[in-house]
């Protein structure tokens, strides 16, 4: 039943957006950074993907472009998920913000910026959310040492 629904959605998207892969019960689409906002807008308006689940990133240090920004969307009508992957280089880790389409994007983008340093163009509020003011660096990058602590309070001992 799920497979049938996924195949039907793939057909629809093939006509509108492009070829969508099917990986472990999930539609996966690679998107160029320049067309991200338009693609997500189409998915939301025409194909019913109205719930933004998640925005995160993956760091591939050996590869150029270095980062994969990963979006997960959900359709509350068709009960299907889609994953979008956008590749951004380390030299200019900028991608369009989805804050105009989804309110939920704001906190996700703040976290992604905190952890990876991805800049979301159009999201006016990229203050640290999980980390704190004065924290230097982006911990989830592979070149940040796990135990590199940056204390705010002087230690007693």
């Amino acid at each position: 039943m799920l497979t049938a629904a996924l195949e039907a959605m793939r057909e629809r998207l093939r006509g509108g957006i492009g070829e969508v892969a099917l990986v472990r019960g999930m539609l996966v689409l690679d998107v160029e950074p320049a067309v991200l906002l338009r693609t997500v807008g189409d998915l939301k308006a025409e194909h019913g993907f109205d719930l933004l689940l998640d925005i995160t990133a993956i760091d591939w240090p050996g590869r150029t472009p270095r980062f994969d920004v990963v979006y997960h969307l959900y359709s509350t009508r068709h009960f299907l998920r889609i994953r979008l992957k956008v590749r951004v280089p380390e030299s200019d880790p900028t991608v369009d913000s989805l804050a105009t389409l989804f309110g939920a994007a704001r906190f996700h983008e703040r976290e992604c910026h905190d952890m990876y340093g991805i800049v979301f163009r159009g999201n006016g509020d990229l203050r640290p959310i999980l980390l704190y003011e004065g924290f230097d660096g982006h911990p989830l990058r592979k070149d940040y040492a796990k135990q590199d602590e940056q204390p705010l309070v002087r230690y007693r001992r």
Partner: peptide, 13 residues
């Protein structure tokens, strides 16, 4: 590293 410098108390946000 040394604690992040502040005057009286660090404000984390």
């Amino acid at each position: 590293r040394d604690p992040i410098a502040t005057a009286v108390m660090a404000n984390p946000v």
